[in-house]
């Protein structure tokens, strides 16, 4: 949670991304990937596209 305290968007995005990948529930995974996507977008990280692709594959993002 230190990443949140530091307001380190990149680290926060990765935490959410990893949590999404680890989830076995697709709704929960999409919820978490959404957060990863948003924080990666905000931080201008190229990996936003990776999270977006995961969401697009589930019909949750475009």
């Amino acid at each position: 949670m230190a990443a949140f305290d530091r307001q380190d968007g990149a680290a926060v995005a990765r935490l959410y991304g990893a949590a999404g990948d680890a989830s076995s529930d697709i709704d929960e995974a999409c919820f978490l990937w959404t957060h990863a996507f948003v924080f990666a977008l905000e931080a201008g990280l190229a990996e936003a596209e990776i999270y977006r692709a995961k969401l697009v594959a589930e019909g949750r993002e475009r």
Binding site: A29, C30, F31, W33, H35, V38, L55, R60
Partner: peptide, 9 residues
């Protein structure tokens, strides 16, 4: 984010 419900954007 979540505009169509949790995890549905």
């Amino acid at each position: 984010p979540h505009v169509g419900g949790p995890g549905r954007n």
